[in-house]
Amino acid sequence: MRQTILQATADQSDVVAFRIGEQDYCIDINVVREIRGWTPTTVLPHAPPYVMGVINLRGNVVAVIDLAARLGLGNTQPTPRHVVVIVTFGHQTVGLMADVVSDILGVGEAELKPVPDIGCDTTRAFISNVITLEDGRMLRKLELSAVLPPRAGERP
């Protein structure tokens, strides 16, 4: 059904768009496994502040990342209305917490614009491209490899 709406073509990729605070972000749909509501997490000791803890995803232990905290936008007070986007990147499965999932869109290759040169490096390091939409919104495409926490042994 998605195909009929989006009319995906060769130079087009689908993205999942979601909102964090007042900003719109998106990630490639191919890494998204599912989207679920926020459930209480089990806090991990010695974890960085942006790691909210771990949840049970059908028998797998999956860490949940507070994207707002990760992107330097301040910590979130999670409620059941928040969403967790489960992504698989490499062999790692991680949940990304956002305020709300807004859209699934097809984005043409040409619409991907380089990130403007702005001073704020904290957020910029996690964004690969920006996309401007017809309604005037701006989507920031997340660079997953930067967002995910470093693996075992890389942390002190």
Binding site: T42, L44, P45, V54, I55, N60, V61, Q92, T93, A152
Partner: peptide
Amino acid sequence: NNYGAVHGISAATILGDGRI
């Protein structure tokens, strides 16, 4: 598998209520 080693923690388990 999905996160990494945590000091002082050997593994995790799932309780009856589904929590970890």
